[in-house]
Amino acid sequence: MSAQPYKEILHNGLWKQNTGVVQLLGMCPVLAVSTSVVNGFSLGLATVLVMVLSNAAVSPIRNYMPNEIRIPVFVLIISVLVTVVQYLMNAYLYGLYVVLGIFIPLIVTNCIVLARVEAFASKNPVLPSAVDGLAMGLGLAAVLAILGGMREILGHGTLLSGLDLVFGDAAKAWVITLIPDYHGFLIAILPPGAFIGLGLLIACRNFLTLRGERKAGGNAAISHADGGVAVSHIN
């Protein structure tokens, strides 16, 4: 296989079919956990891990699995992997585990994981499937990190707070205080801030896409026609 399909898979996951701002799947963690960069990105990475593993696990058995029970088997595989990730986080990243709490098991119900397994991994070889999981997951993690950053700056005036949960107490010094003696902008931290922030991100992404298409001229019409065919975008 040439590099071209992989490039396209990456482009799909990170930009064209981005989970967070285009497909709008898996909104529960996006809205609830994106209160800071560290929280958002950590849950994003946990999701990446689960997506890569679940895609890679489903792909090799795709031809042996009875069609009728594929959904229960997918759900079984995903929930096993999520529980494994949860155990590992509990053991090695306890602080973060406490903060992300109930959202780790909820990765099971994040429809993007099952969606990629069903739409991609059950029809493609192992390596492209794993790359697809990686790209889709990273797309989501990026949205979580950017949204988390926006809310953290506006809400607390800091960046990277809570990094000590991942790297131990030494990381407390790495917190960047952008606005000293800031009293906080409450709505950014509360749930409405998540919706407003996500809306702005979607608008921003649409603006960039439209501008790209206008520059590309006639190609825009083709790229609108469907989601899957290789139409190269210029961003």
């Binding site: 009875p66 029970i69 088997v73 079984l76 494994v84």
Partner: peptide, 14 residues
């Protein structure tokens, strides 16, 4: 039976 097979593997991993 094939569902059971997957369940057994999953449980073993867990």
């Amino acid at each position: 039976l094939s569902l059971l097979f997957f369940a057994v593997i999953g449980t073993a991993v867990l």
